[in-house]
Design a protein around this nucleic acid. Sequence first.
DNA 1: CAAAGATTAGACAAACCTTTCTGTCTTTCC
DNA 2: GGAAAGACAGAAAGGTTTGTCTAATCTTTG
Lengths: 213, 213
Amino acid sequence: MERMKRAPVCAGGAALVEPAGRVVPHPSERLLAVAAQLFCREGIHATGVDRILAEAGVAKATLYRNFGSKEKLIAAVLRYEGEQWRHWFFDVLDERGVDGREALLAMFDILGVWFRMDTYYGCAFINAVGEHDKTDPAVRALALEHKRAILQRIQAEAEAAGATDAALLTHWIALLIDGAIVTAMITRDGTCATLAKDAASVLIDRMCPTSQS
Amino acid sequence: MERMKRAPVCAGGAALVEPAGRVVPHPSERLLAVAAQLFCREGIHATGVDRILAEAGVAKATLYRNFGSKEKLIAAVLRYEGEQWRHWFFDVLDERGVDGREALLAMFDILGVWFRMDTYYGCAFINAVGEHDKTDPAVRALALEHKRAILQRIQAEAEAAGATDAALLTHWIALLIDGAIVTAMITRDGTCATLAKDAASVLIDRMCPTSQS
DNA sequence: CAAAGATTAGACAAACCTTTCTGTCTTTCC
DNA sequence: GGAAAGACAGAAAGGTTTGTCTAATCTTTG
């Protein structure tokens, strides 16, 4: 079963309709997909295990056999969701066939697409950290891993763009992305992706003396 | 009982130690302060009513007499916390006696102070929206009100700075602020305030042709 | 001082949550 | 085919949740 291209699982609507042959994936993955959807839409602690089981059509014993506890399910869901999201985001980015400055700007177009999905519920990691005990490093560690993976790609594009300080530009772009993600969640207005893109353009110009727009 | 100057209630540690005369405020405000603290640190849905009552030393009947339900308490806490935070933030900003470009940049210094508090748990509104049902506009409306109040001040300073498009600069600054807030929550690294400040400086320069730094 | 109103402590109901367990059914593998 | 493993439905345990109610006590106010 290869990974298919689809919207981020935060959006995760079509997770259960797979190509014929096997109508539904393994119960374990069905749990992940359904839990990701519910956690993102309604919040983690507000979503009971029974809800997930009913919606996934999975027995309770199966959940506890596969994941052990709800906390571990949460961690697995975050890993799964992060993987799905990055796959989607980077695949769409790759399809554009651009790099450097153009790629950095394209990221904000893709964010705009994400924000405009009616299943946009913000970033699963930001929301998860926000509703967990902030003195507990467990969930934060998962978020940091996700963040690091994204920063890595941004930095590669920043270097390709010829930034005089690629690391600094990377952090600037990341700040705009995070800001846009939470702003879009709160305002439900996808245009903040364009605002962020314009700001990014200015920052890139300042950092890349060679190719001014 | 006049409002005293203090750290934002997200930080809210010293909320119960008041100047002599009245050891503790009214039960109703004690509930707000304690609930704000717990909601911010451990999450709203993860915090039970009993916990709040025990820590505030308030009877359960008093909570339900004053607020009616937990949902209404949450709304009251968010309003209270937002008021406290804005009071703190704007007061500290005013004390600096700067305006325009200098004020916009000073905001990021103040954010840096906030981020470095060991009681920094991110923005109460962002976290609250993140852990609530995203199809329910109730909590989002409170967050939007808070956001609007902040945008208003940013815009005033953007205009004072002589920005050619003050509204656009306002949104840019706001994106950086929100990005820094969530980045600081996840990384627990206050230096992202400085990164955001540097980015803001670039954006302001681009928007304010008169006074380049 | 006295009355009115608020607060407290705590018991209590009803719902919900996580987790375990039992027993049956289906799939898989040799 | 037969055996072993996994999945299913659902009950039940044990704890926690929100919310209500009853008295007794404290605070405020006229």
